[in-house]
């Protein structure tokens, strides 16, 4: 507790002294998988302002589009916890199905699509009525979730089946599957919907797929001098809204790859903490936050300068990361 107070108290004073920090900054939320907590980081001070207790084995985390609800996958509690970001109280639990790992919201803000890792299912939940709209069978160990910007196509990756499943969100049916390299972990559409990026952790590649033809345009591979190829394990992907840059977290290679999202060439590797998995861009795209599971910290990348500017200690095994919309 002491350490929490040590960080909370100064942060509180700083908040008071600086007045309305939130006008200029955003709030970043990080799930700590082994601590059963969420660390809350202020993007101006770049400090942990508070750590709250959540359910067991928290992994995926997301804010609703209006920023009024923070959703946390409490995987070992088989539930999605809904937290009020202002009071930090738990409002309710969603009937997520067993072992929720990652999820994504429809562009309109509802429904929520959840990957149930243990049951080879996607559960679709209406956030207003709290009801399950559908359960969609997919491959073994579903995890990555991507939605086309128009909300019509949901893409799920299954880690042991090694496929990206294309799901029609109006019929909840899988209409196509694309085989990618081993252990796909993450799926991300570009903002214009023209491309879909899928990372393969064990395969060590990122497949860039044309969502209309469902053909792989290019498999991006990585080479870092001094790092064994087996240690290059791509997981999280984030692409800037203008479609110019993509960031790929490379796991135990402890690097984030910066890729020219137009030419699909790797431009740079940024050294971050150990075993980097998930990432989030602030809405103004000035900062990128990465969760580093083994070094128990979050690296902050200055996006225009492409420099790592800080690492922030959080709880044990930081996993997911989300940012407030304003």
């Amino acid at each position: 507790m002491n350490s929490v107070w040590r960080s909370v108290v100064p942060a509180f004073f700083m908040l008071v002294m600086s007045g309305q920090t939130s006008v200029y900054g955003y709030t970043v939320y990080v799930t700590n998988e082994k601590d059963n907590t969420v660390s809350i980081i202020d993007t101006v001070s770049l400090k942990v302002t508070k750590t709250i207790k959540v359910g067991q084995r928290p992994r995926g985390i997301i804010l609703t589009k209006d920023g009024k609800q923070l959703l946390v996958c409490a995987s070992d509690d088989d539930t999605v916890q809904v937290i009020d970001p202002v009071t930090l109280e738990t409002i309710k639990h969603l009937p997520s199905g067993p072992d929720p790992e990652l999820f994504i919201l429809h562009p309109t803000g509802n429904p929520l699509y959840i990957a149930n890792e243990d049951d080879n299912l996607i559960t679709v939940i209406d956030l207003v009525t709290n009801k399950v709209l559908a359960e969609i069978p997919v491959g073994v160990e579903p995890e990555g979730m991507g939605l086309s910007p128009d909300g019509k196509v949901l893409v799920n990756t299954s880690e042991t089946t090694n496929m990206a499943h294309f799901i029609d969100t109006s019929t909840y049916e899988v209409f196509d599957n694309v085989l990618v390299d081993a252990r796909p972990r993450f799926a991300e559409f570009t903002a214009d919907g023209a491309k879909l990026w899928v990372s393969s952790e064990i395969g060590g590649t990122v497949s860039v797929i044309d969502p209309t033809t469902r053909k792989i345009i290019k498999k991006i591979s990585f080479a870092i001098s001094g790092v064994r190829s087996e240690a290059i394990q791509p997981v999280g992907i984030r692409i800037t809204k203008d479609g110019s840059k993509a960031f790929v977290a490379l796991g135990p290679a402890n690097r984030v790859a910066v890729i020219n999202a137009k030419t699909l060439e790797v431009e740079k590797y940024l050294l971050v903490g150990q075993r980097v998995w998930q990432m989030v861009l602030t809405p103004d795209e000035k900062l990128l936050f990465t969760t580093n599971g083994v070094s128990n910290d979050v690296s902050v990348i200055d996006v225009p300068a492409l420099k790592v500017i800080k690492s922030i200690g959080v709880g044990r095994f930081p996993w997911g990361v989300a940012v407030s919309p304003n």
Partner: peptide, 8 residues
């Protein structure tokens, strides 16, 4: 609720 497509 389970959807019809499941069997497929």
């Amino acid at each position: 609720m389970r959807i019809e497509g499941r069997k497929q």
